[in-house]
């Protein structure tokens, strides 16, 4: 896969399609699953582009072979003075899960983070009920740093939020 920048109309259409799948939404985010129109999402994206701050970096993910758009990966909350940021990733179409696309996108993003942005570490949060993502982050070199006990309520029970991080020196040893 490769990381790309897309027209807001294209991203919005893909976002809305992915968003119809409530399981995807619950693996991705802790906000309540709900449905948005393409028009609304496009407006947000355009607004976001206008005031894009240097603390956010978002890319779309396309498969190299077919050039198909399958998801996004992004960095937020970059703190330049401390040299760290938070990352997130989502593959909206279930048929693309478990094929190594996410792991590959993480590799490219980490290279970008440590050799272009020159950050010192990256953090991420993952839900206890998402073992697929957890394995993928471990493969990419992230280490478990703790768990926020019973942080979320879903399906009538409470789940931990797991926090992970990778330092530049750890990434250098992998690369």
């Amino acid at each position: 896969m490769r990381l790309t920048a897309e027209d807001p109309a294209v991203t919005a259409e893909q976002f809305v399609r992915s968003n119809r799948d409530s399981e995807y939404v619950r693996l991705l985010d802790n906000t309540e699953a709900r449905l948005w129109s393409v028009k609304k999402v496009k407006e947000w994206l355009e607004k976001g582009f206008e005031k894009e701050t240097p603390a956010t970096f978002t890319f779309s993910i396309r498969i190299l072979e077919s050039d198909r758009l399958i998801g996004f990966v992004g960095l937020g909350g970059v703190q330049w003075s401390q040299g760290d940021a938070w990352m997130g990733i989502g593959l909206g179409d279930r048929q693309d899960w478990g094929k190594g696309y996410g792991t590959d996108a993480l590799r490219v993003l980490l290279r970008y983070i440590f050799t272009e942005l020159n950050l010192h570490r990256v953090s991420l949060g993952v839900f206890e009920y998402n073992p697929r993502a957890l394995r993928s982050y471990e493969k990419a070199g992230f280490r478990m740093e703790g768990r926020q006990r019973k942080l979320y309520e879903r399906e009538g029970r409470r789940w931990d939020g797991i926090v992970m991080g990778i330092l530049r020196e750890e990434w250098e040893q992998l690369a």
Binding site: G146, R147, G165
Partner: peptide, 12 residues
């Protein structure tokens, strides 16, 4: 409050 973890080397 209970300790739940630490973001290693988060601050410079």
């Amino acid at each position: 409050f209970v300790h739940e973890g630490r973001l290693r080397k988060f601050l410079d």
